[in-house]
């Protein structure tokens, strides 16, 4: 059955929503598999017009540290979801092998590596922040961080920035 509409529907893209959405994602892990959830969600949120902030803390620093950001690793050790026999997980070279496989899979579906992903996110208007306490603990200065990290900020600063936001902790 065909319905003929009197008026043509136009998608409501909610450009002028009364209460615009805002999202903050805290990235606290530095392994390859734990970096991606935050990056993928941020990218999706930005594509939906949502103001998005990424806050990197503790091991999450590896995602924005110039020396490590392109070399995050994945290990099957302690992860039953890899469905590998535990006796194999700890073999020498297993982390390098598993990392290589995961990177290949990520590339295979045309998802960018970490540095390119951060570039794409900031091109789309996303904000990157680094945690003050982590920076002090690890003796890392802003010059060692990815150049699009806006600033190293305190926990209180983050609380201010995240006012009214939905928060995701990874």
């Amino acid at each position: 059955m065909t319905t003929y509409l009197q008026e043509t529907p136009v998608p409501a893209f909610d450009d002028e929503a009364a209460r615009p959405r805002k999202l903050c994602i805290i990235c606290s892990k530095g392994s390859l598999d734990m970096a991606y959830p935050g990056l993928v969600l941020t990218n999706a949120a930005l594509g939906e017009g949502v103001e998005t902030h990424l806050f990197f803390t503790f091991w999450g620093f590896d995602i924005i540290n110039k020396d490590t950001m392109a070399h995050l690793k994945f290990t099957p050790v302690g992860n039953p979801a890899t469905h590998m026999p535990p006796s194999l997980m700890g073999l020498p070279g297993m982390t390098a092998f598993a990392t290589h496989m995961m990177k290949k899979q990520i590339e295979g579906i045309d998802v960018p590596d970490v540095p390119e992903f951060l570039e794409m996110i900031t091109d789309a208007g996303g904000h990157l922040w680094a945690c003050r306490m982590s920076a002090d603990m690890m003796h890392i200065g802003q010059d060692q961080l990815y150049n699009r990290v806006e600033a190293i900020i305190s926990a209180a600063d983050f609380i201010e920035i995240s006012e009214g936001a939905q928060i995701i902790f990874v």
Binding site: M1, T2, T3, Y4, L5, E7, T8, P9
Partner: peptide, 11 residues
């Protein structure tokens, strides 16, 4: 199926 009229034609 839903049909709307845009620029005088059915889509």
């Amino acid at each position: 199926m839903t049909v709307a009229t845009i620029q005088g034609r059915d889509v």
